[in-house]
Simulated scan of single mutants.
Amino acid sequence: MDKGNRTTMEFIFVSFSNVPEMQYFLFTSFLCIYCISLAAHMFLIVVYNLSANLHTPMYFFLANFSFLEICYISTITPNMLKNLLSSHKTITFYGCAVQMYCFVLLGSTECYLLTAMAYDRYNAICHPLLYNVIMSRNACVKLIVSSWLIGLMVPTIQTYVTFSLPFCGPNEINHFYCDIPPVVALACTDTQFNEIVTFIIVLLLVVGAFLLTIVSYTRIVCTIIKHHSSAGIKKAFSTSLSHLIVVTIFFGSGCVMYLRPNSTYGTNMDKFISLFYTVIAPLLNPFIYSLRNSDVKVAIRKMMHNIIGQP
């Protein structure tokens, strides 16, 4: 690839499998997951907007989270589905840069939005009397805007240092989207600086947000044990544990992918690890965070009751 003619440069994605039947199976599976994820998140946004009883800080965060998740999975999945059925699995140089920028932007924003949601639950359980004061509408908006601002800074730096590298050798990306490690691995120069930048960003962003989230849930569990009944403890533990499972899948798989040298990247296992935070987590999130919630179930029943028009 010629560094001086980047408008004509292309990257080629390496498929999950070269067996056509397997590609059709994967296409069908990922298409179903994508459609279910989109439908669940869109449904939650509609339910939130049509249900006055859900207009609380918690569901305000969840509605914004659903919007973010729709953007997040739509950055990668449609192109991945196209490539599964295509023999020409390519993306232009600048198309790859745009995909990486959007993916890092939305992933970074999600890290801190999850942290903000954990902080909201911490105040609701640990400071119930001050909750409405601490988590005012203005405070919630500031937390969401801050999450997006942090998200905007990260991809600007990461995408610039990645696509400033010279690419003059192989152009096969051993992945299903333009992720940072496989793209950097194609550069025909020393990439130690890029590895250091990625390590620092992930350490501050992903690990930092994960630790803040864990601290919030730890304080929540301690407060529940100290002040609540056994039934309340069981319910809260169930909710907190399910939230932690999603958080661990998202942050844990991200740490595995980025907190290691690029030289160790390139196996098919890396693709499947990436699936956890790009495909599986967005599918699980609406069911764990919202659709299991009793308030949402009541809101859905009321909404359906109004649509059917029963007296």
Rank of each mutant, 00 (worst) to 15 (best):
N49Q: 13
S51W: 01
S51D: 01
A52T: 09
H55T: 08
Y59P: 06
F60Y: 13
F60W: 14
F61R: 02
L62S: 04
L62K: 06
A63K: 09
N64H: 15
S66M: 00
F67P: 00
L68K: 02
E69I: 10
I70E: 07
C71K: 09
C71P: 08
Y72I: 00
Y72A: 03
I73A: 08
I73G: 11
S74H: 02
S74F: 03
T75K: 05
T75S: 15
I76Q: 06
I76R: 02
I76S: 03
P78Q: 02
N79D: 10
L81T: 05
N83R: 14
L84R: 03
L84K: 05
L85P: 10
L85H: 09
L85F: 09
H88R: 14
T90P: 01
I91R: 04
I91W: 04
T92P: 07
T92R: 04
F93G: 08
Y94A: 05
G95L: 06
G95D: 04
C96W: 00
V98P: 07
Q99S: 12
C102P: 07
C102V: 13
C102L: 15
C102R: 15
C102I: 12
C102T: 14
V104Q: 15
L105D: 07
G107T: 09
G107S: 13
S108T: 08
T109V: 04
E110G: 11
E110T: 14
C111V: 09
C111I: 06
Y112S: 05
T115C: 08
A116R: 07
M117V: 07
D120R: 07
R121F: 05
Y122G: 00
Y122H: 13
N123P: 03
N123Q: 08
I125L: 12
C126D: 09
C126T: 13
H127Y: 08
P128Y: 09
P128H: 13
L130V: 00
L130I: 01
Y131Q: 04
Y131G: 02
Y131W: 01
Y131H: 11
N132K: 07
V133I: 10
M135R: 12
S136V: 03
R137F: 08
R137C: 03
R137Q: 11
A139K: 14
V141I: 14
V141Q: 12
V141M: 10
V145C: 13
S147F: 02
S147R: 02
L149T: 14
L149F: 13
I150L: 15
G151W: 01
G151Y: 00
M153K: 13
P155D: 01
P155S: 02
Q158R: 06
T159C: 11
Y160N: 09
V161S: 08
V161E: 14
T162D: 08
F163M: 07
F163V: 06
S164G: 10
P166D: 10
F167I: 11
C168W: 06
C168E: 15
C168T: 15
G169N: 15
G169E: 12
G169M: 04
P170T: 12
P170Y: 04
